[in-house]
């Protein structure tokens, strides 16, 4: 299949991209890594009039660490994150997750900003953003603003980004000493979208869980924090009884929807299995 006709502009700067977005209203789309946009064009599922290519903007690419946070440029490739020693040292769960995104060829092109701005409900990064309480910086010709991940994912492919805004960077708070994190996903083949996936983070002090965050992807129309299940785990040792109590809340927390191969019941069951396994890893001595 061939894409329908479209115009193409390579942005010379983030400001240039924002100006182009303003000039073309809703008929323009930002092209970053292209790993979702190009297939959707070729399948003629979307027909933008203009693609604004930001892929050459070096200012948007890279990982750096401040005193309080890790800042990941929106154009940073999945593969960059996968190979980053900084990410591996401070957020091993994110490094693990990067390796599970699709296949190497896709990871070499696809970007974290693209993944978050698209908000595919089956993608890893949006859920990671919830679990690690990340914030996003968006810029437009009007200036810039910071958006909490918890306020960002509104629905199926729907985000808090406004028309004219470009996602610039992702901000990950540096973990406290006691924070642990675990990532897991269930895919039938390596590289597939997960039937269910999750990130669980918590501070583990003397074996007790606190500030637990459990973010799921692939189960609903958007990534979700399982709020009731998180509360059920807080203050527990992540033992079987606590996990069983937490699992009992997942249906209300996630309200899973069926996909092509998996019913709501399967999704719910697998989300529960995943939660149990990730909590076990968190709570394990030395986890």
């Amino acid at each position: 299949m061939k894409a329908p006709p479209f115009a193409y502009r390579r942005a010379s700067s983030v400001a240039d991209a924002c100006a182009l977005l303003d000039a073309h209203g809703g008929s323009a789309r930002i092209l970053a890594g292209g790993q979702s946009l190009i297939p959707s064009l070729n399948l003629r599922l979307s027909q933008p009039e203009l693609l604004i290519d930001i892929s050459q903007l070096a200012e948007l690419r890279g990982i750096r660490v401040s005193a309080t946070e890790m800042i990941i440029g929106a154009l940073t490739r999945h593969a960059d994150i996968e190979r980053s020693a900084e990410v591996r040292a401070r957020f091993p769960a994110l490094a693990d997750a990067a390796r599970q995104i699709a296949h190497p060829a896709i990871r070499n092109r696809g970007t974290i900003g693209g993944s978050i701005a698209l908000a595919d409900p089956a993608a890893e990064w949006p859920a990671a953003a919830l679990a690690f309480d990340m914030r996003f910086t968006a810029v437009s010709t009007q200036g810039e603003r910071s958006i909490a991940a918890t306020e960002f994912f509104k629905g199926l492919y729907e985000t808090a980004l406004l028309p004219g805004e470009v996602l610039r960077s992702i901000h990950v708070p540096l973990p406290a000493a006691a924070q642990r994190a675990a990532f897991g996903e269930l895919t039938r083949r390596s590289g597939d979208y997960a039937i269910a996936g999750a990130f669980v983070t918590a501070s583990v002090t003397g074996g007790w869980l606190g500030g637990t965050r459990a973010a799921f992807f692939g189960v609903a129309t958007r990534p979700l924090l399982a709020a009731r299940a998180m509360r059920a785990l807080d203050g527990s040792a992540g033992d079987a009884a606590a996990v069983a109590a937490a699992r009992a809340h997942l249906e209300a927390d996630l309200d899973p929807i069926a996909d092509l191969y998996n019913s709501r019941a399967t999704k719910l069951h697998l989300a529960g299995v995943l939660l149990a396994r990730l909590v076990a890893r968190l709570a394990a001595p030395g986890g």
């Binding site: 269930l186 039938r188 039937i195 191969y261 998996n262 019913s263 019941a265 399967t266 069951h269």
Partner: peptide, 14 residues
């Protein structure tokens, strides 16, 4: 033999 078909056979889901 999808996970769902096995889970059903195992009685893990209805």
């Amino acid at each position: 033999f999808t996970p769902e078909r096995l889970l059903r056979a195992l009685g893990k889901i209805a």
